[in-house]
């Protein structure tokens, strides 16, 4: 029997797809700029085009992030991002153990998806860190790079622009790795495409 749960309302699905597309553009253009060669040999696309696409995508991403925050404040979606202190490490370890061993032994999921508990503990902590730590750092430092005149010139003898950029590319890299893992873990549904379909239809489906 297939259990169906409506977990992804329209606004989340639209926000999510926009976020995903923009993030892919930002990774592509960001890598292209960071590893540019003088003859264009390492550039994925032309530097000036990479800058333009990166800037425009980042501005849209920022607005999209604001939509996410407002959506979470205005709806009950924020409940999925509240981390409980009790059993935090034990739950996290149980989920990791399931991914590493349990799922290969056909064990039951330690934290089955319910209407109240959309994310497992590992998802919850990684999504909270990505959305409430990673994204703000990325947006604020990106804003600084877009308007370098607002940055502190020197911070303890080091260029403010350098610190900002290192923070930006480091966080960009961390979130890129997060995205890679996120995409892979989304193949861990009943079938590899099940969870992707959920983000289109809005319904989480699994066999009981």
């Amino acid at each position: 029997m297939t259990r169906r749960l409506y977990l992804y309302p329209v606004w989340i699905r639209i926000w999510h797809v926009i976020n995903a597309i923009l993030f892919l553009i930002l990774i592509f253009t960001g890598v292209s700029m960071q590893f540019a060669g003088s003859g264009g040999e390492f550039s994925l696309i032309r530097f000036d085009q990479a800058v333009a696409w990166h800037n425009v995508s980042a501005i849209i991403l920022t607005f999209n992030y604001v939509v996410f925050i407002i959506g979470n404040v205005a709806t009950t979606n924020s409940r999925h991002y509240r981390i409980k202190k009790e059993n935090f490490w034990a739950d996290l370890f149980a989920q990791l153990k399931f991914y590493a061993f349990g799922m290969f032994k056909k064990e039951k999921h330690p934290f089955p998806v319910t209407y109240e508990q959309k994310f497992n503990p590992l998802q919850k902590i990684s999504y909270v860190l990505a959305m409430y730590v990673g994204m703000p750092v990325l947006i604020i430092t990106g804003f600084g790079l877009l308007f370098p005149e607002i940055l502190v010139q020197q911070f303890f003898g080091v260029s403010g622009l350098l610190i900002t950029d290192i923070l930006h590319i480091t966080m960009g890299f961390i979130l890129s790795v997060f995205m890679l893992i996120h995409i892979y873990t989304c193949t861990l549904g009943d079938k590899p495409a099940t969870l992707f379909k959920s983000m289109i239809s809005g319904y989480h489906e699994e066999h009981e």
């Binding site: 540019a36 060669g37 003088s38 003859g39 264009g40 530097f47």
Partner: peptide, 12 residues
């Protein structure tokens, strides 16, 4: 006019 003349490891 090519950005990568400066924005590259072989920056002019």
């Amino acid at each position: 006019k090519r950005c990568t003349e400066c924005h590259s490891s072989e920056s002019r």
